[in-house]
């Protein structure tokens, strides 16, 4: 399989260092406290935030507790299959998302509360974790939870000796290493960086990490833009503008 042609184009016509079409929408669910849909190419994730709320159970006296669940729709990929929310993959993804997003929340401002994050993968075409993180970020902002910074996430990979940004499903199945990253642009801090599959020489890893930060910056740019637009709409609706 050829992932990058000698002309420098990927299977879907992008160049190696280009992101897919990124779409963000806020407030897509009325019943949730905060919600957002994020699309990266054909990967589409719906995130819903409930809370902060006071519930019975093990609550921490001096900070908020974050809970997270990821479910994948059976129709999310070409072949219909039952994909549970308790599978090992979903559990692992949920843990990663919880840890990453909790790091960005001023938890200490919300003691004795709980924040629930629900993710629904509606379409899966690679980069699920990154799309979830982006959607989660927007949903948290929509819910009005105090955040430290913006968070942007994207995945980089390495196939045929070429660093690729934002891999789609075909490229993810190419067998190369995958590095999902989450990044806070203003604090210039990497919140999360994983490496799934494969081995890499350190030099290549550094190239990939730099590419991932650049990608994340571009994503946060978009996220900022959509937050601004949404806020503007709200302001117009309230008649304050």
């Amino acid at each position: 399989m050829e992932y990058v042609t000698p002309e420098g184009l990927r299977t879907d016509g992008r160049r190696p260092r280009e992101l897919r079409k990124l779409g963000c929408q806020l407030g897509t669910l009325e019943s949730a406290d905060g919600s957002a849909t994020c699309e990266m190419g054909f990967t589409k994730v719906l995130a819903a935030v409930f809370g902060p709320r006071d519930t019975a159970g093990k609550l921490h006296p001096d900070r908020a507790v974050v809970r997270c669940q990821v479910a994948t729709a059976p129709f999310s990929a070409g072949e219909r299959r039952r994909r549970g929310k308790r599978g090992p993959l979903a559990t692992e993804q949920a843990a990663t998302i919880r840890e990453t997003l909790a790091e960005n929340i001023h938890l200490e401002l919300l003691p004795r509360t709980q924040i629930d994050l629900y993710f629904h993968v509606l379409q899966a075409d690679g980069g699920i974790l990154s799309t979830c993180l982006n959607a989660g970020m927007l949903a948290l902002a929509d819910a009005g939870i105090p955040l430290k910074d913006l968070v942007g996430s994207c995945t980089v990979g390495y196939l045929e000796s070429t660093p690729l940004l934002d891999l789609n499903y075909i490229e993810e199945s190419g067998g190369g290493p995958l590095l999902p990253m989450a990044y806070q642009p203003n604090m210039d801090k990497i919140l999360m960086l994983q490496m799934d599959k494969g081995k890499l020489p350190v030099e290549t890893f550094e190239v990939l990490a730099t590419l991932a930060t650049e990608g994340c910056r571009a994503v946060t740019g978009q996220i900022r833009q959509s937050l601004m637009n949404h806020t503007k709409q709200l302001a117009v609706a309230r008649g304050s503008v």
């Binding site: 879907d12 016509g13 897919r20 070409g78 072949e79 789609n168 075909i170």
Partner: peptide
Amino acid sequence: VKVVREHY
């Protein structure tokens, strides 16, 4: 199955 792919 239906395969859907992006094309830029």
